[in-house]
Design a protein around this nucleic acid. Structure first.
Length: 256
DNA sequence: ATGGCATAGCGTCTATGA
């Protein structure tokens, strides 16, 4: 079973690439972020036509998350309960006995800004939510755009990025608090080459120069770790015409 | 070199992203 996450930066623009990629890679479950569309405009038919079903929580212009699955989607939950938030950033569901939680964690804009404080508070609420979810669902995967590069090796130039948003210590502490719940960065369960990233700025010819960050992650609960067989970042979609600035991250699970 | 790009929206510019 392959599960994956991809910030598509507008599903209106990227739907053809997503459909093509699902077909080519035979992915079972894909979590997408930044759909930037309202629910009634989500292209459900295009996915059902190729054998997938989808649940979506979206809004105009910003945010928007979806889970697209080959297998039945059950126990769907939108948003973080007990968090007042008009931004559409979370959808959760149970698929093949695994709790799949798709998140678009706030960007934070710049350290000390209102958006940065919102990000840190949001992460606290997410952690509390996950603590609850883990009690209910021991087999859990948290997939999404975290907007956090957890370690310096996830940053192309750590000195230049030191202390700035996406890498600042409070954000990394929040990431480690998620890990402290018993969640594991599945990408790092496996031997990986250096300088692998999931996002590159559209500017500065950043992709060709590999000036990137690893900010899209698949965290899995301890109960799922034995099932994890491989994890990789698929750079191919980032090379297409009109790409998203993010590229998919994939985890292969053997769930018997 | 803090920018250069991309997306959406009552839009010829602004807000946002990371």
């Amino acid at each position: 079973m392959k599960i994956a996450t991809w910030n598509v930066n507008s599903l209106n623009v990227r739907a053809p690439q997503v459909l093509e990629w699902l077909n080519a890679e035979a992915v079972d479950v894909l979590c997408v972020q930044e759909t930037k569309i309202e629910d009634h405009k989500f292209p459900y038919d295009e996915f059902t036509n190729i054998g997938y079903q989808a649940v979506h929580l979206g809004q105009k212009t910003y945010n928007g998350v979806a889970i697209i699955s080959k297998h039945p989607i059950e126990e769907v939950q939108f948003d973080i309960p007990n968090l007042e938030d008009i931004q559409k950033r979370v959808v959760a569901a149970t698929i093949c006995g695994i709790r799949i939680i798709c998140v678009y964690i706030p960007n934070g804009q710049s350290v000390g800004s209102d958006k940065y404080l919102y990000k840190l508070q949001w992460l606290q609420a997410l952690t509390a939510y996950l603590e609850q979810q883990l009690k209910q669902y021991p087999k859990l995967a948290l997939l999404g755009d975290y907007n956090i590069a957890p370690e310096d090796r996830d940053v192309y130039d750590p000195e230049r990025w030191q202390g700035s948003v996406l890498v600042s210590e409070p954000e990394r502490v929040a990431f480690r608090q998620l890990q402290a719940l018993g969640l594991h960065d599945s990408f790092r369960l496996f031997e990986q080459p250096e300088k692998l990233y999931s996002w590159w700025d559209y500017r500065m010819v950043a992709f060709r120069r590999n000036l990137g960050l690893r900010i899209d992650h698949i965290l899995i609960s301890s109960a799922l770790v034995p099932a994890a067989k491989a994890s990789w970042i698929d750079r191919a979609p980032r090379k297409l015409e009109r790409p998203s600035d993010h590229t998919p991250v994939v985890l292969e699970l053997d769930i018997g």
